[in-house]
Simulated scan of single mutants.
Amino acid sequence: MTTTLNATEEQQGSPFALSHLDALESEAVHIFREVAGEFERPVVLFSGGKDSIVMLHLALKAFAPAPVPFSLLHVDTGHNFPEVIEYRDRTVARHNLRLHVASVQEYIDRGALKERPDGTRNPLQTVPLTEAIQQHRFDAVFGGGRRDEEKARAKERVFSLRDEFSQWDPRRQRPELWQLYNGRHAPGEHVRVFPLSNWTELDVWQYIAREGIELPEIYFAHEREVFSRNGMWLTAGEWGGPKDGETVEKRLIRYRTVGDMSCTGAVDSDATTLDAVIAEIAASRLTERGATRADDKLSEAAMEDRKREGYF
């Protein structure tokens, strides 16, 4: 008696079937190549955080053995973790890339921006970012945002149109059926591009492990002086912490996400290896931003409000 396999069974048993990570990688590589074919002046946002590191790794793969045909852009708050800035500069030098830095501190020094009472500079990134885009005439800007991070980001398409003021209007979202991306834009407008939209935090870490990608050490458990504020472990620094009544203590912690020191919290952890980090994330019930980003807790619509103004 002859048994006939259905299409699903054949695909699962096929040596040519893509794994989950292979499919995500293939999609991201396709997006990078699509942008290279559609746009004149793309740029990749690169902060030295894990998502931008994975995004750069995918860009290097997409165009190898040729160099990446895009420059990099970092909006530097001036309150970044030193380990991450060192990693950023080392990576740029290793791959012979061009890095543009938009400095929040420069805007503060010349009076174009004012420090916030809470000391956080994440919301202050919008003006330097949008002006850098306008100055260099970037028409496509790659970001490492993922839909699983936060509900406003879950609304966004892979190709997300911004108007001439870099503002986002959810009503102007375009359909993306069959991975067909519409990059049309009027003069002065640009498109934000998210190659990792369909990835999860766990996908990112599993891909880092598979590819052997180097990361800044603060993503792994280490002893650090921190203090507690609103249920989060924050790093002491010139930005204004700790305040009266907030006690600094040394704890074994690591960071799930990296941003401005004033609003990026650490988590208690003894995960010193990739396997241990992956196991920790698989057991977590909080997103990385929900667990460690104070700037997202300012209001229910904090991220969406900032995106409408031009933030990533």
Rank of each mutant, 00 (worst) to 15 (best):
T2D: 12
T3I: 06
L5P: 04
N6Q: 01
E10A: 15
E10G: 08
Q12L: 15
Q12R: 10
P15T: 08
P15F: 03
A23Q: 02
S26G: 07
A36I: 00
G37R: 01
E38F: 02
F39H: 06
E40G: 04
P42R: 07
K50F: 06
S52R: 04
I53H: 10
V54F: 11
L56N: 07
H57G: 10
K61S: 04
F63V: 02
A66F: 11
P69L: 00
F70N: 08
F70G: 07
L72Y: 13
V75A: 13
T77D: 13
F81W: 05
V84Q: 02
I85A: 09
E86A: 12
E86V: 06
R88D: 09
D89P: 03
D89T: 06
T91F: 09
V92H: 07
A93D: 14
H95M: 05
L97V: 10
L97D: 09
H100N: 15
H100I: 15
A102F: 11
I108C: 05
R116A: 12
R116P: 12
D118K: 05
T120F: 02
V127P: 09
Q134D: 11
D139K: 02
K151R: 14
A152M: 06
A152K: 10
R153P: 01
R153L: 05
V158I: 13
L161T: 08
L161N: 05
L161V: 14
D163E: 09
E164K: 15
R174K: 13
Q179K: 03
N182H: 07
A186L: 13
L202S: 08
D203P: 07
W205T: 12
W205S: 10
W205M: 11
Q206N: 14
Q206F: 04
Y207M: 12
A209Q: 15
Y219N: 03
Y219S: 01
H222E: 11
E225M: 08
N230C: 01
W233L: 15
A236F: 00
G237N: 01
E238Q: 10
W239P: 05
G240P: 06
D244H: 07
V248L: 04
R254F: 11
R254H: 14
Y255K: 11
R256W: 06
V258C: 08
V258W: 05
G259H: 09
C263Q: 07
T264N: 05
G265F: 00
D270H: 07
T273E: 07
A276S: 10
A276Y: 11
I278P: 04
A283P: 01
S284H: 14
E288K: 04
A291D: 02
R293Q: 12
S299F: 12
E300Q: 14
A301N: 15
K307M: 15
K307I: 15
R308I: 14
E309G: 14
Y311E: 12
